[in-house]
């Protein structure tokens, strides 16, 4: 069991847990969106690190190069990043609407207002 060979997964997990912690421990909705973004980036890093081949190069065909890294995860993550920004924009739009409706973007204060009502 040579442990160093797995460090890419561990980096992913640390990042993922940081994002997860922000999402569940913070009440501020913008902070939660940032936490979700970190979570997303950790998944991206996971895919990209899976695609890496030792001694390979970027997947652009050229004469004299034999090993390329796996192009499929690159494609998936490429589109996922752009979709991520679109969904982030949607989440932020929802935050703005919540702020307009409740006057706050803190989760517990919104819950308090809901209980009062």
């Amino acid at each position: 069991m040579e442990f160093p060979g797995l460090y890419n997964y561990w980096i992913t997990i640390v990042l993922m847990m940081v994002g997860f912690y922000i999402v569940i421990a913070h009440d501020n909705l913008i902070k939660k969106v940032v936490g979700l973004n970190i979570f997303q980036v950790s998944v991206f890093v996971f895919y990209i690190s899976m695609a890496k081949v030792q001694g390979g190069t970027a997947p652009i065909l050229d004469a004299g190069i034999e090993t390329y890294s796996n192009p499929l995860p690159h494609v998936l993550i490429l589109t996922a990043i752009v979709v991520a920004v679109a969904t982030t924009a949607l989440a932020l739009a929802l935050v703005v609407r919540i702020r307009n409706a409740y006057g706050t973007i803190e989760d517990d204060e919104i819950e308090g207002q809901e209980d009062d009502a």
């Binding site: 652009i60 490429l78 589109t79 990043i81």
Partner: peptide, 8 residues
């Protein structure tokens, strides 16, 4: 088509 880049 030839280098890094594309529509996104």
């Amino acid at each position: 088509d030839f280098g890094p880049g594309g529509g996104f």
